[in-house]
Nucleic acid binder design. Sequence first.
DNA 1: ATAGATTCCTGGCTGC
DNA 2: TGCAGCCAGGAATCTA
Length: 278
Amino acid sequence: MPELPEVEVICRQLNTKICGKKIAAVDVLLARMLRNNDAMVLNKLIGDCFEKVERHGKYIFIETMKKQVLLVHLRMTGRLIYHDVNKDNEERYERLRFTFVDNSYLTYGDTRTLGAVYYFENKEAIDIPGYLALGIEPLSDEFTAKACYDLTKNSKMNIKAFLLNQKYITGLGNIYVDESLFASHINPKRRANSLSAKEAERLQQEIRRLLSASIEHGGTTFRDYKNSDGEVGNNQKYLKVYGRGGENCLVCNNELSVATIGGRTTVFCSKCQPYKED
DNA sequence: ATAGATTCCTGGCTGC
DNA sequence: TGCAGCCAGGAATCTA
C-alpha cells in the first residue's frame, strides 16, 4: 500500500534515474491502465525526454522536456521500477513499459490493476478531481500545528476518516493514520472537531515524525511495496499498531483493538487512546 | 456535510 | 490437494 513515504522514495529515486532519458518506445500491455485516453496517445512520448518527477500527495507527477505529463497513482499494488541495461529482474505483472534509447526502461507493474495512469498534453490540462482537490502536504512548512488545528476544528468527521481523506491532509493512508493516532494518543472514533489545540499539535508533530522516519527507512513493505529498484522497505519493523490487531500494545501491554472505522480496518489501543465524548 | 455501501481487482489465507 | 469464501484498501460513485 504505497502511501506518502513510499511514493516519496520512488520519486526521489526516479529523479536520479530517468531524467534526461530519451524515450524510444512505449509498450502497452494492458490498455485499461491508462485511464483517461486511448493508450495509443502514449506514442506522443516517443522522442521526448522525462525531465522531472515530483510527488503530489500519493500521485507521481512525471513531466517531459516538451511539458507532457504522466500522472501515476499506485493505489494498492502498483509499482514503478527502473531497469538498468544490465539489470534483469522481471516484472510478472507488467502493464506498461517505457523503453529509453539506451535500452534501459521504466516499467509500470500492478498485480491487481487498481492503479491509475493518466496522460496529459501539459500540466494545465490535468482534470482529475481528486488530484485538483489535494489538501495540504504534511511535510511542507505550511503544515503547522495551527494549520492542523484549523483543519480539524472545522470537521465533524471522525478523525480516522478525516485523516484518510486526501482533501484535508494529503498522503496518509491506513498505515500512517493508525500509527499517527496511536503515537498522539487519539482515539480513532473521536470527531475531528473534538481535538484540543494541544492534541492537534501533537498529531501534527507525530504525523511529520512518522512520515519522515519512514522515508529514512525506505518506506513500509507490508505486502507488495517495492521501490524503483525493486527493493522492499524497512519501516514495517517500526510499526506499533498497524497489522497488530489482537496482539499486545507495545506501550501498556493491553490487547490492541480492531474495528472498522472510516470504512477501514483500524487498530488502536483503548488504554493509550481513550475515547472522550465531544 | 457526513456516513455508509459498493465497485474495481487478484493473491494469499482460512476452513472444510 | 482442491476449492469456496473472505480479506487486503485508495478513491470514485452512489444512496441516505
